[in-house]
């Protein structure tokens, strides 16, 4: 009984390491396709449309409402201490350092990452990837690399849009609706948000999340069991692993960037 459970733990640990190793080799294979992709930028442009442009609506609306809620809650607390003029700082720092990169990445993994896993998984299930191999076309370079690169560069742009919309919507709620002084809202924000420390670090986070989300999405899709149940499981795993990876990495990155 005990021996059995020890054996199970050993087996699971080994399979986790095997999967991590497999994913790392797969990432190298993806990156190996970048050189040939530079000669055909149109492949990336198509994918920027499906990963980035089509995610725009959910990013815009989420940014809008997150900014509004943040402003409302921040105002209620700040006004008690008479420092509601700092609302802009509160909202902008929260958005730039934390909420923008994390929420945009979570939304992106749900919208674009899951779609990508399902697309690649279905291409595998319908033998499209195998047929490419037989046409002497490497499916990783032709299908996976353009999607990976497009996703990695789309997320920081979407994050920037999320931040901008969030901050502006918080201004609308804070200043126009709740009456916070417009001058102090913007001037305090300008004085306290540092380009290098806050903005650049926020975008570094976003870039890292983009790599992780895309890596998980394409890996799960490419290695899905080629059946409808297999693709469905892979899509679920893609979203769950992405969310956990984003939140776990966020803690590590935050402690490095803004911790002690």
């Amino acid at each position: 009984m005990i021996l059995e459970s020890v054996r199970n733990i050993g087996h699971k640990t080994l399979s986790i390491f095997q999967r991590v190793g497999q994913a790392s080799i797969f990432l190298l294979h993806i990156l190996g396709g970048i050189k040939s992709l530079l000669l055909r930028p149109s492949l990336i442009v198509q994918q920027v449309y499906s990963a980035g442009v089509l995610s725009l609506l959910i990013i815009l609306f989420s940014g809008l409402f997150v900014g509004m809620v943040l402003s409302l809650l921040g105002y209620v607390t700040l006004v008690e201490f008479g420092v509601e003029g700092s609302l802009g700082v509160l909202v902008s720092l929260s958005m730039i350092r934390e909420l923008g990169p994390v929420l945009a990445a979570l939304l992106f993994s749900g919208r674009a990452g899951s779609a990508l896993t399902a697309e690649i998984g279905l291409m595998k299930a319908t033998e499209q990837l195998a047929s490419m191999e037989m046409m002497a076309v490497d499916p990783v370079k032709r299908i996976v690399t353009p999607r990976f690169i497009a996703g990695v560069f789309s997320l920081p742009v979407l994050t920037a849009i999320f931040m901008a919309v969030g901050i502006y919507s918080s201004f609308l709620v804070g200043s126009i609706w709740l009456g916070v002084d417009e001058g102090s809202f913007w001037s305090q924000m300008q004085a306290n948000v540092d380009f290098q420390h806050d903005l650049i670090n926020g975008f570094i986070k976003s870039f890292v999340f983009g790599v992780v989300v895309m890596w998980i999405a394409v890996f799960e899709g490419y290695h899905a069991i080629p059946t409808s149940a297999g693709v469905s499981e892979a899509t679920t795993r893609s979203v769950v692993y992405s969310a956990l990876a984003i939140l776990g990495l966020d803690f590590i990155l935050t402690s490095i960037m803004f911790g002690l």
Binding site: T126, E127, S131, M134
Partner: peptide, 19 residues
């Protein structure tokens, strides 16, 4: 292998057309 495959053709059962 990829060079050799250029000299082979394969018709898949499902057709496997790019959708």
């Amino acid at each position: 292998l990829y060079i050799s495959r250029k000299r082979m053709g394969m018709l898949f059962q499902s057709g496997a057309l790019l959708t």
